[in-house]
Amino acid sequence: MTFDIIRGLHILAVIAWMAGMLFLPRLYAYDAEQADKPEPLRSDMRALLREWQRRLLKIIVNPAMIAAWVFGVWMIVLHVQNQGWGFLAQPWMVTKLLGVVALSGWHGFLAGEFKRIQAGTSTKSGRFWRMTNEIPFLIAIVIVLSVTTEWTF
């Protein structure tokens, strides 16, 4: 029962984390596209977009990532207590863990870019953000299919 509750909370945290990481690059794209707008509109819109970026990152994306990691590690600990360490070497679990590291790396990239955008030093275009917007979803596909199929060699 405890494991099922932790797994449910882990899934909810991942959903929130993914939602934020799919929306944040879109806000970055809108911000980057303000450069060719007339000044009064540009300043007002950029201020609003940057506040939305800050709130999304600080209130949703960061806490959701932390919760996903905490519940994920907790599930691993419970699994190890009951069945040992062997499952961590299974190909599907290695793939999942590599996917989680990739998602965390993308999260770090987005957080770093947030600081550059706030400082006005970002060089990324709206096109860049639109092209990379689906990266978390592609990683999630690999993770979810690995976990649901528990594939092996």
Rank of each mutant, 00 (worst) to 15 (best):
L48R: 13
W92D: 09
M18P: 00
F23M: 09
A35D: 14
G112R: 05
S146T: 05
P40E: 08
A16D: 01
V77T: 08
K96F: 06
V73I: 15
T132K: 11
A16S: 03
T121R: 10
V142Y: 00
L110T: 00
M131H: 09
V94H: 11
W151S: 04
F128Y: 10
T123N: 10
P136R: 02
M93C: 13
P38K: 08
A32K: 06
E39S: 10
M21P: 02
I143Q: 05
A13D: 00
P63F: 06
D4G: 03
V14C: 02
M21A: 07
F128V: 01
N133D: 09
F137V: 13
L49I: 00
V14R: 00
W69P: 06
W106E: 11
G20V: 02
V77W: 02
L78I: 11
R127H: 07
E134K: 02
A68F: 05
M1I: 10
P136I: 06
V73W: 05
P63I: 09
A102V: 15
Q83S: 14
A47D: 14
T132I: 13
W151H: 11
D4M: 13
L138N: 05
L41E: 15
L9S: 02
S146V: 02
A140C: 11
M21W: 03
E134M: 09
R116G: 04
R54V: 09
L145V: 15
R26G: 13
S146Y: 04
A13W: 01
T149P: 12
F87N: 01
V14Y: 02
T152C: 10
L98G: 07
H107Q: 15
N82S: 14
I141P: 04
H10V: 01
P91Y: 04
R26Y: 13
I76M: 14
E150D: 14
I15N: 01
L27G: 03
A89D: 09
P91E: 03
P38V: 12
I60L: 15
D44V: 12
W151Y: 11
R46V: 07
T132D: 07
A47N: 12
G112H: 04
A68V: 05
F87C: 05
L12S: 04
T95L: 10
A16I: 04
E39R: 10
R55P: 06
T2K: 07
R50N: 14
R26W: 12
W17R: 05
D4V: 15
F153D: 11
R116I: 01
S43C: 11
I139W: 00
M65S: 08
I59N: 15
P136A: 06
I60D: 11
L56H: 12
I11W: 00
P38R: 13
W129N: 03
A19Y: 06
Q81P: 02
A67F: 10
L9Q: 00
L78D: 07
L103Y: 06
Q34N: 12
I11H: 00
L98F: 13
P40W: 07
P63H: 07
G72M: 06
D4I: 12
L41R: 12
K124N: 11
G99P: 03
I66V: 15
I141M: 08
P38E: 15
N133C: 13
V100W: 07
T123L: 09
A140R: 00
L138P: 03
I76Y: 04
